[in-house]
Amino acid sequence: MSQDKSQRGPLQRRREISDHVLTEGSASAADLAEMFGVSLMTIYRDIDELEREGVLRKFRGGVTAQPSGVFESNVAYRQKSMRAEKEALAAKAVSMVEPGMSVMIDDSTTTLELARLLPRIEPLTVVTNFLQTINLLAEERGIRLMALGGDYDPLHDSFLGVPCVEAVEALRVDLCFVSTSSVLGGFAFHQEQHIVAVKRAMLRAASRNVLMVDHSKLGRTALHRLAPLTAFDLVLIDDRTPPDVLRSLDDSGVRYEVAPT
C-alpha cells in the first residue's frame, strides 16, 4: 500500500518536490502544500532547503527550476529541455571531429549529446570536467579520456575552481566544444563566475572553438559576459532560430551554421 504523502519524511518529500518541479518547470507553494498535505510553513522550509542545496530557486509564492539571469538550472532540468535541438547540434558538431584529434568538451548538457556520438570516431583524446561525460566514455577503449579535476559542484555535476582552470591551462587541444546559457548582442553570457573562468580557460587551450547553442538561449542575457561570438571559429544553432537573430549574426560577421532538427 502506498504511503500517504502527508506522512512522508522531509527528505523524501523534498525529493518528490524536486522531481515534480524539475518535470513541470515551476510550482506554487500553495499547490505543493495541497499536493503533499502539509502546511505552507512546512513547504517554505522545504523550498528554503532545496534552494540552499542549489536544486531549485525561489520566487514570490513558489519555486522554479527554470534559469534566470543570475541562476543556472539544475543539470537534471537542463537534461530534459531542448533534447531534439541538442541532438541536432551534436549531429552537426560531430562532423568536425576526425580520428586522432584531441577534443575538449565542457560541462553542458548540450555537449553531452556530442559525447554520445564520439565513440564512432576512434581513436580520440577527449578532455572534460563533466562527470556524466566521464562516466559515459570511461569504458570506451578507443578513447583516451582525460578528466579535469577540481572542486566537485553537484549543481553542475562537474569539477570546477582554480585546480580545474590550472589543469586546462596545462593542455593544448585541437577542438573545443562549449555551450552557454545565453547569447545577446554579439556576446555569450553565463550566470556564474566560476563556470565562466573554466570555459574561458578552455577556449584559450584550443586551436579551434565551437559554440553550441539552441534557440532558447538566444536573445537572453546573464550576469557574466563569457566571450564575444567572434572569439568562436563557429557558432552552431538550430533551425528554430528566429530570422532576426540570423540577420544579427550576419551583420556582426559571426560564422555560424544551422543544424536541422
Rank of each mutant, 00 (worst) to 15 (best):
P10H: 02
A30W: 11
G37S: 05
G37M: 02
R45Q: 12
K58S: 09
F59C: 06
G62A: 07
V63H: 11
V63S: 04
Q66E: 15
F71E: 13
F71T: 10
A84F: 03
K86M: 14
A93T: 08
A93M: 10
M96L: 15
V97N: 04
E98L: 13
M104V: 03
D107A: 06
T110F: 13
T111K: 03
L112I: 06
L112R: 11
L112T: 06
R116L: 13
R120I: 02
I121Q: 00
E122C: 03
V127E: 02
F130S: 04
I134T: 12
L137S: 07
R141L: 15
G150L: 01
D151C: 03
D157W: 00
V165D: 00
A167G: 10
V168A: 10
A170T: 01
R172S: 06
L175S: 03
S181A: 04
G185Y: 12
G185P: 03
I195R: 07
V196D: 14
R200F: 12
L203C: 05
L203T: 08
M212N: 03
H215N: 10
H215Y: 08
K217W: 09
T230F: 01
L234G: 12
L234K: 15
D238E: 08
R240C: 07
V245M: 09
E257H: 10
A259P: 10
T261L: 12
